[in-house]
Design a binder for these strands. Structure first.
Lengths: 168, 168
DNA sequence: GCTGAAATCACACATTA
DNA sequence: TAATGTGTGATTTCAGC
């Protein structure tokens, strides 16, 4: 992946390609090319470029937690607000590193105003959730306050970024 | 997609397959089969079954918002807590339907205790964010209270579900 | 954007437990 | 009987032009 912060230039085809991929990464290169009305070769070259530029971060299958629960038992999704004792960069970065390293943390956002971080976590059960809280919050003296809300239903999961020049 | 709520039975190979796919849906069937030490045919059959059972909800490319911002200008990610006037199912379902239909809403969770919903939204800019707030909250008399936190950095995005019998 | 070689996929069928 | 693995033609990928 290209690591420089050079200015990246994207034309309308790149944007349509990114948009198609963030909605359905299961399409074959051929199907994708047809949808964008470009040749398969062009489509492939562009996709490779967008990957090498780091714009496409990962491709993943999103599993359905409700369905999976029928087979594995219910997991526990929580939205957690975390406030630290101090807001200097070292303190923030320290907590962030620990949060990101925790496998049960699915998402981590630095936010403002309000708490310092919002996490989305998913644990197998309540003991696992409590153990995560022990590791990540109780054992960390830089954590001042924690509020956890448990998800009773994930109504939507569609992390699509708006690609403005598309006119969406 | 199978719509019945029949008991779904998953063996260790199914779980390893789901786990591989939720971490990397870019693998070819051949590579996947090799990783799981099964034949390509088995791998493909199993994948199809998991899709038809609705366990695999979608395949998507996750874009990097920081990188994309270099080309498009920064967007605005917010975590929003929403409390409604009443908590009866009709009121909850009404708001949920509107939230899910809003394209800027990336994720929607019903939660308890605390607020009734937590949303993760992404808008092109502040005017777009305010317009979303107008549509979704101000215009809805069932909404009592809204708290929005703006994300200054997405530190982690890895919506992997724990597949317990794997021993992870 | 086109073409062709190499890889991959997807299906039918034989095989095993 | 149900699931796996092997083999085949068809499709797709991906290089050079």
């Amino acid at each position: 992946m290209s690591e420089e912060n050079e200015t990246i230039s994207l034309d309308a085809t790149d944007l349509r390609l990114l948009d198609a991929l963030q909605r359905d990464a299961g399409l074959s290169n051929l199907a994708l090319a047809e949808r964008l009305a470009v040749s398969p070769a062009t489509c492939l070259r562009r996709t490779r470029r967008l990957e090498s530029l780091g714009l496409i971060e990962q491709r993943l299958a999103v599993l359905n937690p409700q369905r999976l629960a029928l087979a594995l038992g219910h997991g526990l999704t929580a939205v957690i607000e975390v406030t630290l004792e101090r807001q200097d960069e070292a303190t923030l970065a320290g907590f962030e590193t620990r949060a990101v390293a925790e496998p049960t943390v699915q998402q981590c956002y630095r936010v403002s105003p309000g708490p310092d971080f919002v996490l989305v976590t998913h644990c197998a059960d309540m003991p696992a959730h409590l153990a995560m809280g022990q590791r990540l919050f109780t054992a960390d003296s830089s954590v001042r306050n924690v509020k956890a809300f448990f998800s009773t239903k994930r109504s939507k999961f569609a992390p699509y970024l708006p690609l403005a020049p598309l006119g969406r």
